[in-house]
Design a protein around this nucleic acid. Structure first.
Lengths: 280, 280
DNA sequence: CCATCTTTGTGCACGCGTTCACAAAGACAT
DNA sequence: ATGTCTTTGTGAACGCGTGCACAAAGATGG
């Protein structure tokens, strides 16, 4: 998880010592419920009345036993010999996830990514409503994005209180993320989705989930490197004769480059590996 | 997590039966290496020579024992009584992740999100190079985004082969994702980062990681609902006297799923054991 | 009503990941 | 050199998640 998990499992170190698992559904299951919901919604739109665990599992990309066990945490909603009622299950999962409520969210930092999120259709269709777009840059405030005016962060507290916002999305540059986070929490936000590459410190009772685009790519690169030459690994891959690597990727293999690591000039120490989006 | 695989460990069922873990570094550790790398890079920029596992763990937001165990999979790079050499560790982790190589990537689907990713500075600084931006819409091709021209997907195969691209990023609408994925794989791509809300089918040997923005929000909504009142749960938490939630979220019932369902039916959630750890 | 067939729900075992706790290793002072 | 102090590296225990495999439950047909 990936994961995520994620995912996944998805480790959430910022949440700290106490998991907010109040008696109930395992975290791994909760992380998969949206997956099932998406597959079920597609079936519902095709007016499919019932679905077996095998079919639904295939549509969601998981193991059928895992799916059945996941559903068992919600209760017994299936009929043996038949399967699950699609509409009923859609409702049960939606209710369990809290999607039968209206969730106003604020997006802070309207750069490229904030722009993309504001326009993302997957929010509105799942009960999430963008209550406000916020940015600290006076050049950005006032613009209309996705039909909403970008408002200045000075209004943050007022908006959060009046609209009863409990979920905040941070898409600011990393330097501003913690400060924005603190203000969000102080104003009453208790769940934060953080896209800035920063570790956020939050008090107990506040949930933070993070999405880091470059981390995902780095994990892929690791596996990609493994798939490519393992020429400096000799012992193990003999048993695992899965040499199914059809394409030679841009190799330019580093081949260990010597142990002596020039300290002081490791490698890329250049500035500017941050988001540059909030500027625009 | 991602959770995932999320990430978390992010579960990647599409990768199929056999994990390509050549009996090396655990997946959970690999997923954390970019986190350590980021923290170490920040220390390096401040010219901090060495760091203890305790300090670095705090900066990365993880447990120090976990960090030490993670590093133990890479080898013994620390000095007892002192800590870890920052520059040396930056190099070792970069090498392990394959970031000392050049990784050309293609981004397919230059909508809002593709636009944001093309401008994302976190790629170039980590050894990733955007080899091409691709889109199927003639109205989009030809535009210049982040200094690169958007090229038509007709050129996909040619670009992938000539630039030796092995990593592809899919930011298309969900309907086009599988088709784009198939073409990427056929042309030689063996790692895919999927932002489309679709389950991708890929052959063995191809890694897929997915990032779903709405899933993360749904997971937050679940926990948020838990934190707010469980008033419609009957057997509720008498023991959980954690009523520290100042803001009640706006609870207007949603419009979506409401038909042919009897919400009155009791749920059969009979998990007796509760793992709640005493609230602080 | 009985037999058969399909599919759910789950007990159980296994492996991975996390965390604790401590011995070993090295730095540093005397 | 010797002792003390700091910090690493890791053995071991524990808990969670996964997947197998099967009994129970219900549908269906005769």
């Amino acid at each position: 998880m990936a994961t995520g998990r994620s995912t996944q499992h998805n480790p959430n170190p910022a949440a700290g010592t106490r998991r907010s698992r109040g008696r109930g559904i395992p975290d791994a299951t909760v992380a998969r419920l949206p997956l099932y919901l998406r597959a079920l919604t597609a079936l519902s739109e095709r007016s499919v009345p019932t679905v077996s665990s095998e079919e639904l599992a295939a549509a969601a990309g998981v193991n059928s036993a895992k799916l059945r066990k996941d559903f068992s945490y919600l209760g017994s909603y299936g009929t043996r010999g038949v399967g699950y009622d699609v509409e009923y299950l859609v409702y049960q999962i939606s209710r369990e996830l809290g999607l039968t409520q209206d969730w106003p969210v604020v997006i802070v930092g309207i750069g490229n990514l904030g722009h993309a999120l504001a326009n993302y259709g997957g929010f509105a269709s799942r009960g999430f409503r963008v209550a406000a777009l916020l940015d600290a840059d006076p050049a950005t405030t006032g613009n209309v994005v996705a039909g909403l005016p970008v408002r200045h962060t000075d209004e943050m507290e007022e908006i959060i209180r009046s609209e009863r916002v409990s979920i905040g999305v941070i898409t600011t540059p990393p330097g501003a993320a913690q400060q924005v986070c603190d203000r969000l929490v102080a104003a009453g936000v208790t769940s934060i989705l953080n896209f800035a590459p920063t570790v956020l410190n939050v008090p107990d009772g506040v949930d933070v989930r993070k999405v880091d685009l470059s981390i995902e790519l780095q994990i892929l690169a690791f596996h990609e490197q493994r798939k490519a030459g393992d020429e400096y690994r000799d012992e193990d891959e003999a048993a695992d004769a899965d040499a199914e690597v059809p394409s030679a990727p841009a190799a330019a293999v580093v081949s260990t480059a010597g142990r002596a690591v020039e300290p002081g000039r490791g490698h890329g120490n250049e500035r500017g590996q941050e988001y540059e989006e909030a500027a625009g």
